[in-house]
Design a binder for these strands. Structure first.
Length: 1044
RNA sequence: GGGCAUAUAGCUCAGUUGGUUAGAGCGCACGCCUGAUAAGCGUGAGGUCGGUAGUUCAACUCUACCUAUGCCCA
């Protein structure tokens, strides 16, 4: 064992340990040594490294470290393989910026050049990530990491896709997306929201005459005239009030929302309400279309009123024009009600020949012409303009339009019930997410759009015949299949490497080429359980055996992300859940409760926290919060510092205390017989406490309740430092190496060693330091992380003793409180303290702890009594939970009656007798009898024990107290003038106070002994002595000290 | 607008199936320096448990509604 310094820098210590792990490869060893053990399967979700890691990543990483470390120590083989998400929009956007091609079509610069630039950049930050992640103490395999852009990974993704295809879970449909007519491509919501501009648009109100009653016209409002040629329906809200109203000026009848009348008619005299109705009464009413371009669709159900909740009566008329191809709600409502779709706008944003009046014209240019046309035909009743903010295409500068695009879906609805069933097999921490956030999301699950009109991703392996009549499709589920189809050798599956391939259609002889889209990168991360091991091309058995995984952990934001896609794919492929246990972490906010923002600089950089306070502190701080049950945390550096101050340093000091003396005494744990059974009651107590802690930690960890662990650790450290060590200090000071001292060393050594094992998953550094130094500091293979988690040892547990000890702690706290109340400092000895408890057995168990109380409270004699009446009176309380169900409404009277019962009667209750109260027979179970101190102020009742303190200070006690005060001043001076603990001195004193003089005389031997005085006399010559003056309670006290 | 979560002492949070005096740490006040620790120890003050209504003998706990905050969805 090596000695350690008084001031410790945890960050420095951690750096040294990191260096040791780097050299000694302890992580690899910890996994390798379990290679024949049972597998504990952990899936690591791939992050995207387009920036430095933030607290959210570190938090998830810490949870992903603690739990695998724990299970490794529990004897399992836990592979921990890091993965990187490498495809997708973020990197594409970054590369566009880097290449200076924002706003240009990527095809113009070449997909090959673009994709290769993406490939080269995706791991740009991975080194910084590795450094920071390792610095937090996380053990994870970066070397053998998986990448979603690896051919093997992509090939497995193809296999997944083809499996779904074969099971009829993939289909082509439409989704209304923001579409850029300048770039000929739909945009993601993210891209679509990056350039909003305030623009003027027409806001027009149109009339829709009813087929059956042409004199009645519905009023419909829109700001996009170009969608009117495609109008196929009108929507009303089921519960809004609508009116049929007569315009007094021309007797025309209109239908509109009642609450919006005033926006059309200034005066009440301008109109008359003919009829009122709810929206649902309008359902199915047919109207005459605005144009005849698609008039024939009336036969297919178009041009009628449909009902939906999304309609509002906030602006317009309360009746909404629907063009199913050009609005998300339009599309949803129309497809639900089987109204056909038309899309007479081409990829350039120009009308097709179907809209013959304006064919070939850019839609926005057509707006005024359409308005004019409608006006001429008296279909327009109001024409205004509206300023609103509208999304634009960042690249081309065109306003975005919402347009139905062909996309590919996974048919989630088809397997929804199975997914829900599989979710039921999963343990969520916190539990409410299972049925709440995630469960509810599953219930409302919609089909999953997996195609993206992008370039840097896994290409969708669908190959379609270019003959529109034919529609033959080939699917490649592997590289080999593509090679077979194309007849070419392939080794990279990216778009620019395979999109030149084509072959002859086996059906019609046309040309078969790949469709243009890539897969949503969530499809890739959801395929990670298979793709990371190149399943099923390799590792077939391993992957199948490892499903579902034992454990995953990610943030709450993954509810709709990874958690969801993992579940969909594992259900689709194997009809199994993807994971058995999931720990969901919450969001880390800045201290001010806002989002952490680089721009606002409202949080300290992770690196600086690690450098200043260390990883152990950060780890404990983070997991001792609601974060590990999906609650938010306002991150506070002070919180991290407090972990150091309140948890790590006290433990460090306990550890240092042990080393200081153990090294002086040359204590060698190896020479202690394995189980030197200590007969010391404090030793047995602390050993029992570690054992209890061990169980508690395992119990909570087995349930993945990390947030329960740190409070238990803190409680234990308090018991260790402020009770065990403080009460035992004298045992370590005694000279020599006698049996009692050996027992003390052996106990403390064992406790620290045991505790370091328990701490290892949580504070891997400090645990490593303590464990290695206590066992074999120099052996390179030595590491706490290569050990087993302590097995429960029932023999070491002594619940009775722990209980007695807790009573003692309570008694001591009461004793201190009584002293404080009576203004008697601890240095003033008192003669007697009485412990009061009616249970003789409890008092009996207390016996071994008497010396502890005596010393702790500076009391000469500790007495026991079961005779409570002398000190306390009994007070009864109703045992509510027992009586409640039995007496119900009578409780009110009984409660009062019971509270007023006199002590004499309560004695009988304690003796087991039944009592009549308010006409009811009450058994003893109905009562909770408590103690209340009698008026006498020297008694205080606690929850489990009462204490009576004899506060009388006899002249004799007074002198003894004075002697202790004097001793205290002398010792203080010794320290002040820099004497070493073992330095001997000559001592002189002087006082005018009779009492003090007497006290010094009477206790001179005791004091001299304590201060290591060779001589102890009254002062007659101050020369040569270091002089100090004190005032003890009004008595002057001058001392002189000279080193002997 | 919908879903989920959160709301308890000045601050950060515990609080088992409804039951007896709602706990802890920090901060604050006061006190304590004799060989591990002042980055320490002790004692104490501090709460109508977000609001309203309800269920119940009994509500911090259950129900409904409302308010505030966060996340997700629309």
């Amino acid at each position: 064992m090596k000695t350690v310094g008084k001031s410790v820098s945890f960050p420095e210590m951690e750096e040294q340990i990191l260096e040791k792990w780097r050299k000694g490869n302890h992580f690899k060893k910890s996994v390798a040594q379990r290679k024949n053990s049972e597998e504990y399967v952990f899936f690591d979700g791939p992050p995207f490294a387009n920036n430095l890691p933030h607290y959210g990543h570190l938090l998830a990483g810490i949870i992903k470290d603690i739990i695998p470390r724990y299970w490794t120590m529990r004897g399992y083989h836990v592979d921990r393989r890091f993965g990187w998400d490498t495809h997708g929009l973020p990197v594409e956007m970054e590369i566009e910026k880097e290449l200076g091609i924002v706003g240009q079509d990527i095809k113009d610069i070449g997909i090959d050049k673009f994709n290769e630039a993406c490939r080269a950049s995706v791991l740009k930050y991975s080194k910084e990530w590795e450094r920071t992640v390792l610095r937090t103490g996380r053990w994870v395999d970066f070397e053998n990491r998986y990448l979603t852009m690896q051919s093997s990974f992509m090939e497995s993704v193809w296999w997944v896709f083809k499996n779904l295809w074969d099971n009829d879970l993939i289909y082509e449909g439409h989704r209304v997306l923001p579409y850029s007519v300048g770039c000929h491509t739909p945009l993601s919501n993210f891209e679509a929201s990056s350039d909003y501009r305030d623009v003027q648009d027409p806001a027009i109100t149109l009339t829709m005459p009813l087929v059956d009653r042409p004199e009645v016209k519905m009023l419909v409002w829109t700001t996009t005239p170009w969608t009117l040629p495609s109008n196929l329906a009108v929507a009303a809200h089921p519960d809004i009030d609508y009116v049929e109203i007569e315009d007094k000026s021309d007797s025309t009848h209109y239908i509109m929302a009642k609450s919006l009348i005033s926006s059309f008619f200034k005066k009440k005299t301008d109109y008359e309400i003919i009829k009122e109705m709810k929206g649902h009464e309008l359902e199915g009413i047919q109207y005459t279309p605005l144009f005849d371009f698609f008039a024939e669709l009336a036969d297919e159900g178009a041009f009628r009123v449909v009902i939906d909740d999304y309609v509002t009566a906030e602006d317009g008329t309360g009746l909404v024009h629907l063009a199913p191809a050009y609005g998300e709600d339009d599309y949803r409502v129309c497809s639900r009600d089987n109204i056909p779709m038309v899309d007479p706008v081409n990829n350039d944003g120009k009308f097709t020949s179907e809209v013959k009046n304006w064919a070939g014209m850019y839609i926005k240019d057509a707006d005024p012409l359409i308005i004019k046309n409608l006006k001429n035909r008296q279909r327009l009743v109001k024409h205004k303009t509206l300023v609103h903010s509208y999304p634009y295409c960042e690249r081309s500068g065109y306003p975005l339009i919402y347009k139905a695009m062909p996309v590919w879906f996974v048919n989630v609805k088809k397997i929804k019930d199975k997914i829900i069933a599989n979710n039921k097999l999963t343990n969520w921490v916190p539990e409410h997410i299972k049925t709440g956030r995630f469960g509810k999301w599953l219930e409302g699950a919609r089909d999953w759009n997996i195609s993206r009109n992008r370039y840097w991703g896994t290409p969708i392996p669908l190959f379609r015949c270019n003959n529109e009549e034919c529609e033959h499709i080939d699917v490649a589920g592997s590289i080999a299949e593509l090679e077979k189809l194309s007849g070419e050798k392939i080794d990279d599956l990216h778009m620019h490497m395979i999109d030149h391939l084509s072959w002859k259609c086996p059906k019609c002889g046309g040309e078969v080429k790949r469709i243009s889209e890539v897969l949503d990168c969530w499809f890739e991360s959801g395929s990670m359980p298979y793709a990371q091991y190149h399943y099923p091309f390799e590792n077939k058995e391993k992957v199948e055996k490892g499903l579902p995984a034992d454990f995953i952990a990610e943030g709450l934001d993954q509810t709709r992300g990874w958690f969801y896609t993992l579940m969909i794919l594992s259900t689709a492929l194997f009809d199994k859940p993807a994971f058995k246990n999931v720990v969901v972490n919450g969001l880390i906010l800045a201290e001010d409760g806002k989002k952490m923002s680089k721009r606002l600089q409202n949080y300290p950089a992770p690196d600086s926290i690690l450098d200043q306070h260390g990883a152990d502190a950060l780890r404990l701080y983070l997991i001792n919060s609601g974060l590990v049950k999906a609650e938010d945390l306002k991150f506070s550096e002070k919180g991290v510092r407090d972990v150091v101050r309140l948890i790590l340093l006290p433990l460090w000091n306990a550890y240092r205390f042990f080393l200081t003396y153990a090294i002086i005494d040359n204590f060698d744990p190896q020479t202690i017989p394995e189980h030197l059974p200590s007969d010391n009651v404090l030793d047995r107590w602390i050993l029992s406490r570690v054992e209890t802690l061990n169980r508690k930690v395992q119990e909570e960890m087995d349930k993945y309740r990390l947030f329960k662990v740190v409070p238990a650790l803190v409680e234990f450290i308090d018991d260790l430092t402020n009770w065990y060590i403080r009460l035992n200090r004298r045992r370590f000071w005694k000279p020599g190496l006698l049996k009692d001292k050996l027992q003390a060393y052996s106990t403390l050594h064992e406790v620290l060693r045991h505790f370091s094992l328990i701490m290892a998953p949580f504070t891997p550094f400090l645990a490593e330091e303590i464990y290695c130094n206590l066992t074999d500091a120099d052996f390179i293979d030595n590491s706490v992380h290569l050990q087993d988690f302590p097995k429960p040892e029932t023999a070491k547990m002594d619940k009775k003793l722990e209980h007695s000890f807790a009573l003692m702690q309570e008694a001591i706290l009461i004793g201190r409180s009584l002293r404080e109340q009576h203004n008697i400092g601890v240095r003033q000895p008192l003669s007697r303290l009485t412990l009061i408890n009616s249970d003789p057995e409890e008092l009996q168990n207390f016996k071994p702890l008497i010396p502890v109380i005596s010393e702790e409270l500076n009391i000469k004699e500790i007495l026991f009594t079961t005779n409570e009446s002398e000190f306390v009176s009994l007070v009864a309380k109703p045992n509510l939970s027992f009586m409640g169900p039995r007496f119900g409404k009578k409780m009110k009277f009984l409660i009062n009656a019971i509270r007023n019962l006199p002590s004499v009667i309560l004695k009988k209750v304690e003796a087991g007798e039944n009592i009549e109260v308010e006409g009811e027979t009450l058994t003893p179970e109905c009562f909770l009898i408590e103690r209340e101190a009698k008026e006498d102020s020297v008694v205080q009742a606690g929850q489990h024990i009462s204490v009576a303190l004899d506060t009388r200070i006899t002249p004799e006690l007074k002198l003894e107290g004075l002697a202790r005060e004097a001793l205290n001043r002398i010792q203080r001076t010794r320290k002040e003038i820099g004497l070493e603990v073992e330095d001997r001195i000559h001592f002189r004193y002087q006082t005018d106070d009779k009492n003090l003089a007497e006290a010094l005389k009477k206790h001179d031997e005791y004091i001299a002994n304590e201060i290591l005085a060779k001589s102890f006399k009254k002062m007659n010559n101050k020369a040569e002595y270091i002089i100090n003056n004190f005032d003890i309670d009004g008595a002057n006290f001058t001392i002189g000290i000279k080193k002997a």
